[in-house]
Simulated assay, not measured.
Amino acid sequence: MLNSLRAVPSRHQSLVLNDAGQVLLVETSNRTTLTLPGGAAGKGEPPHLAARRHLESATGLVRALRCLLVADYTAARRPFTFIHWGGRLTLDDAAAVQHRRAVHWVDESVFPDVLAPDDHRRLAHALAFYTFGSILPVLVDGAPPE
């Protein structure tokens, strides 16, 4: 069963907040809207490491991704989207990331204007789960990843 799950295309994203409660979103070349940093896993790449790699590539941040907030199934090209908790940055740390051209710190009030509807719904759920402490630990071989 595990091998069949690995064959299913999936998208692995990271949710990072700053101390002002803004969400880190990025521009991508294949979308007209902003999105959470993320992308597909490489062959044999663990999901949390795929999300970490995409986060670092888009923002320069290297974060330990040890918790999942959302696992979403849709009938789209990548039927599963996973949102990993990337943590909260101080405003100073967030400002250091801001210098990258395609990175934006966005208030929840403007999500409908900058996100695709499915991304908006998914992110709203991820934020709600984070707020209420509903997280799922990520384990590799029964232990938290490095």
Rank of each mutant, 00 (worst) to 15 (best):
V8F: 12
P9D: 03
P9T: 08
S10H: 05
S10R: 12
L15T: 08
L15N: 03
N18S: 10
G21E: 07
Q22W: 05
Q22C: 11
V23F: 06
V23L: 10
L24A: 05
L24T: 04
L25S: 02
L25T: 02
V26Q: 00
T28W: 01
N30D: 15
T32Q: 14
T32D: 15
T33R: 09
T35C: 07
L36F: 03
P37M: 00
P37S: 01
G38V: 01
G38A: 02
G39P: 08
E45W: 10
L49D: 03
R52K: 09
R52G: 07
R53W: 01
H54P: 01
H54L: 07
H54S: 05
S57H: 11
L61G: 00
V62L: 04
C67V: 03
L68V: 12
V70R: 12
D72M: 12
R77L: 06
R77F: 01
R78N: 09
F80C: 08
F80G: 00
F80I: 15
T81G: 02
T81S: 13
F82V: 09
H84I: 04
W85C: 10
W85P: 02
G86A: 06
G87K: 11
G87F: 12
G87E: 11
L89E: 04
T90V: 06
L91N: 13
D92V: 13
A96M: 11
Q98E: 15
R101H: 10
H104I: 05
H104E: 05
W105I: 08
W105P: 11
V106L: 06
V106S: 08
V110P: 02
P112A: 03
D113N: 11
L115W: 04
A116I: 04
D118C: 10
D118K: 14
